[in-house]
Each structure stands twice: as C-alpha cells, then as structure tokens.
C-alpha cells in the first residue's frame, strides 16, 4: 500500500509550487490560480489523513474548503475586473491604492 507520507509529500510539493507562484508572478490572475493550487494542497492533505485515520471529519472540512475557494475566486475575479477598469493593468506591482 502507499504510505501516508507519499500523499503528504504530494501535498507539500503542491503547496510549495503555489507559494512560489504567489511570490514571483506579477499577473494577478495567475496569483489567484496559485492560491487555488495551495487550497488544493490543503484539501489533499485533509483527505489523506481522513482516509488513514478512518475518520470522516477530514472530508467534511475538505468540502468546506472547496466552498471557501469558490467564494474566494468570485470575489478575487470581481476585484480584478474593477482594478482593470480603472488602470488597464493586472500587474500586482501597480496595485498600490487603498481607495480611489
């Protein structure tokens, strides 16, 4: 059988990749996609522990994470659209206003 640490390793690799994307990319949309990758890594972790500990709670929390990810995507993309209307750019370095 596949050990638990293998699933945790996949999750860690996925989380590190998402973190890398958030830190080095400039396009706001790619940054949001990287956040989705990190949320997926957390979900894989929860589901793996839920299977190996034979407990249902992990899968329930994973379901809530998916719901939060949907909300996050909606709000984030709405913010991108508003910023793009004002500045014609999706570069995160140029978003430096709290209010206009």
């Amino acid at each position: 059988m596949i050990p638990l640490s293998a699933y945790v390793a996949v999750s860690a690799v996925l989380f590190a990749t998402g973190l890398l994307g958030v830190l080095i990319r400039r396009n706001f949309i790619i940054v949001l996609m990287s956040v989705e990758i990190m949320l997926n890594a957390a979900t894989i972790n929860l589901v793996a522990f839920s299977h190996y500990l034979e407990a249902m709670q992990g899968q329930i929390v994973a379901l809530f994470i998916i719901a939060i990810a949907a909300g996050e995507a909606a709000i984030g993309l709405a913010i991108i659209i508003v910023v793009f209307r004002g500045k014609i750019s999706t570069n995160v370095d140029e978003m430096n206003l709290l209010k206009w």
Binding site: I29, F84, S89, N91, V92
Partner: peptide
Amino acid sequence: VVMLLSIKSEERYHSQ
C-alpha cells in the same frame, strides 16, 4: 475573466 480582459503578455516575474 482571462478572455474578458484580453491581457497582453506582460513581464512575467516579480522584481524580487
């Protein structure tokens, strides 16, 4: 959103 904004390929990486 990607297609709505029709983003031109800009600089990819952060200066950091």
